[in-house]
Design a protein around this nucleic acid. Structure first.
Lengths: 145, 145
DNA sequence: GGATCATTACTCGGATACGCCGTGTCCGAGTCTCCCGGG
DNA sequence: CCCGGGAGACTCGGACACGGCGTATCCGAGTAATGATCC
């Protein structure tokens, strides 16, 4: 078993936060600063920025610095599926990693890795299959308004 | 946003560890002490006990104390699905909770909770659907020898 | 009036301390096994 | 030989410290808007 501290549960939290942030951006349809989003979510602006930076690296968001800057969606909400977000935040990867890190390198570990690998992949595909069916626009609609 | 520390990523880790432990028990088909399992997994026996205690509470395992005691499966491996284990460890619940805890109680939060609730449930059902198809006996077989 | 440029205000993202959860270690309660003595 | 009882040993699970990750705060680099100045 690999001796690694918890790395990754934060991904699930990030997923929840990002979904909300994206809905806010989609509703406004214009650049949103991290401060105004953070206030709506009752959280720290810096933490939100750290999370949104990941989406920027994946070109889901575009940042505009300077006065009246902020984040803008790089795609239309109806073209942005939740699966893309899930992948960008590496939620599935971190879950997979969490399980795999519990498997040590001895013979038994190698056997278990073979046995679990397929199932873990199937779980991941299954979740992504669900998330492919929803877009940010769907969330906006479901949220009312 | 509820101010709560991370509670739950450990569930995924536990899932991986428990899968291995159950395979070991199924292979042996007899009572296994936490020590011998922990040694195979290169981990602390106490940590393993903490996790297996959950399965005992759910009557998936039975503990035998005293000399030559340990843990025994309460069902035949071919009747024990991975979904039961997933549920017993509350993996899905903790993921769900992680996302929901990011949603604060203001009006926007209420809207988001409505919008996300169905999707989160669907994700959970999807994962459980996959795990229903596999049993511990399948893992033992896939692990080869 | 229109263009140019310095100032300003506001943004994002990295660096640094603090706090809580997960981990490691230890110990007690409980019970099954084993061995010995007696019938 | 068979049975009962006590010692022993090994088990699980709860209690108590330590360390690392997540969080919060701060600050610097960068850029777009603004207003003044000049043509």
């Amino acid at each position: 078993m690999i001796k690694s501290r918890n790395t990754g549960y934060l991904q699930y939290k990030s997923f929840g936060l990002v979904l909300q942030a994206l809905v806010i951006m989609a509703k406004k349809g214009d650049t949103c600063s991290s401060c105004e989003i953070a206030e709506l979510l009752s959280m720290e602006a810096t933490q939100l920025r750290r999370i949104l930076a990941k989406l920027t690296r994946e070109h889901i968001l575009v940042t505009r610095e300077g006065r009246d800057g902020g984040y803008v969606l790089n795609k239309k909400p109806e073209d942005l599926t939740l699966a893309e977000i899930y992948r960008a935040l590496e939620v599935g990867e971190s879950c997979n990693k969490a399980v795999n890190d519990t498997i040590c390198g001895n013979d038994f570990g190698v056997q278990m890795k073979m046995a679990c690998g397929d199932i873990l992949e199937e779980m991941d595909r299954s979740v992504l299959g669900v998330l492919e069916q929803y877009t940010v626009a769907d969330l906006v609609r479901k949220a009312g308004y």
